[in-house]
Amino acid sequence: MTRTSRGARQRLLALSSRHHIEARWGALGRLPGHRCLRGPETGMAMLKGRIGATGNAFHLGEMTLTRASMALDDGTVGHGWVRGRDHRHAELIALADAVAQHAAWQEALETQVLAPLADELAARQRRDAATAATTRVDFFTLVRGE
């Protein structure tokens, strides 16, 4: 079993829709007792761009951001962040972070939740790239005379 790093898991769950996560979540079975430690709370992140894409940073504008921290009954704490205002989405990410710290849950989390979500995300991104690729211009040269 490959073990997804904390950062990679956070990324995967943030890029997956809450609907997709919930569809997989049930496979984990009964989770340990847990409660909200902080949040979920919605605020903003100021986004930076770079002048000319590679130069000095500048402030582009803000986006909504939600964060949550969950504690399992044994005191294990997990954190989650996600773009937007979906409290449940942030909670699920935080809960996954807490659960991932327990050997008993790791395998189920990896195989039942993260692996299928990673496949879905890859498929979606591949589909997007394939659609964009159909609009790629093929130049041809018109030969005159001869």
Binding site: E41, T42, G43, M44, A45, M46, L47, K48, G49, R50, A53, T54, A57, L60, E62, T64, L65, R67, W81
Partner: peptide, 13 residues
């Protein structure tokens, strides 16, 4: 809304 974070510069490349 409160500001919770400032992002890393977006990597448009």
């Amino acid at each position: 809304l409160p500001r919770l974070a400032v992002s890393e510069p977006l990597d448009t490349a």
